[in-house]
Write a protein that binds this DNA or RNA. Structure first.
Lengths: 218, 218
DNA sequence: TTCAAAAAACAGGCTTGACTGTTTGTAAGT
DNA sequence: ACTTACAAACAGTCAAGCCTGTTTTTTGAA
């Protein structure tokens, strides 16, 4: 028996180790790639033994799947929070495009690029992922629905612009791999796209870069 | 077997074996993924021994790099041919969007999705690829320049629309992995984008059933 | 023209190294 | 006491690179 505060229940210990392992997995996916994300490497980076990993996850595929689900789940929750905030204060479509870019460029789509090929060739892995992806898309939908409500745009049309935006961002991030060190290029494309999107969500007749407040992004 | 030109020059033998190996590599990249594309598997699929592979290529990375360069080179040549034809007969922007989609959806970007993560983490591999990618982009540029010449659009703006189109298509193909069996969705997105692009390249005969009329943006 | 030596194209085995899944052993928590 | 969390050694698998041997083509001199 030790000090009460020092004592952690088994559930807590278990949860923390799992979290450490999943975070290490995402870090490795992003920094080294799926091929180099081996179970010994994950364990080392998480600071636990490989036995601990096998205790918590059925195997390599399981821990990767769980880690990705965790990442996407967090992103979905962030989206819902952003949607609430956006709805409350009434933001602009530009903000949403910026948010989408920042979110995807901040590891999310780089990690996706790592597991996407595996998902393409591994039906079980893909099936595991699809529900999580749908949950993520629900988060996106919440954000764009908030915008549509404000601009009075048709829901179907809104969804089309949303999907096009996400596809554009995905493609842009793909391109950063073989076209690096060119922020002006990506800024330019994003600016062009914001302009396009604005046409579909006319907010104020005085379409000027005013009325922009702080963008409290979660 | 013995009837037709039983004797082939070494250059011919060598070229054919290399081509067989590179084609097999692309097939495997597309069908099985980079991780499952092993040198024994490539040799087996090409119908040659593994020794032949090591004779022609320095190693696994070399044959993959060469195969991708070959694929992209072919695509670039196709683009230049299309550009010539397009220029001669004066096509529409819709055609170009369709061509880009068909080209990328026809294995090109699926193969790209396989090697892109590797390129991201392997500087040598990436450096090998970048020149080939630039050659491919020159092909794209030829096509869109032909369109711009026809519509009298600013070259910089043309390039922006071109890049946005390619990014959109890249993102759409990425999405097919976790949103399969939904051709209507992709058709819809493509239709939306064709409409947008049309605004930037107004052709003199406004015979197109344009449902949306917007003032061209600066 | 002939034909043997050289060179290139190709075949196939061997070794090493690394990763995955499993099993056995140990300490901590309830 | 008994269950859970973890540690560490183990065994099976397989690809990558290397190396040696064999066939096919080219060369060049008698």
């Amino acid at each position: 028996m030790r000090v009460t505060s020092k004592r952690r229940s088994q559930k807590e210990r278990s949860a923390e180790t799992s979290a450490r392992l999943m975070n290490a997995t995402i870090d490795l996916l992003h920094d080294q790639g799926l091929a180099r994300t081996t179970t010994p490497e994950i364990a080392r980076m998480a600071g636990v033994s490989r036995g601990a990993l096998t205790h918590h996850f059925a195997g390599r595929e399981a821990i990767i799947s769980a880690s990705v689900a965790d990442l996407l789940g967090k992103a979905a929750r962030d989206l819902h929070r952003f949607a609430e905030d956006f709805m409350a204060r009434g933001g602009s479509s530009d903000e949403i495009v910026d948010y989408a870019w920042r979110m995807m460029d901040d590891r999310l789509f780089y990690v996706t690029m790592e597991y996407l090929p595996e998902a393409r060739h591994n039906p079980a892995f893909r099936a595991d992922l699809i529900p999580t992806v749908k949950e993520f898309h629900a988060g996106l939908d919440a954000v764009w629905t908030a915008l549509a409500a404000r601009a009075g745009t048709d829901p179907d049309h809104t969804r089309t612009v949303m999907n096009a935006t996400m596809c554009l961002v995905r493609g842009m991030i793909s391109q950063t791999v073989l076209r690096p060190n060119d922020p002006a290029y990506y800024e330019g494309l994003l600016g062009f796209w914001k302009q396009q999107v604005r046409q579909h969500f006319p907010m104020k007749p005085a379409a000027a870069p005013s009325g922009r407040r702080k963008t409290a992004v979660a």
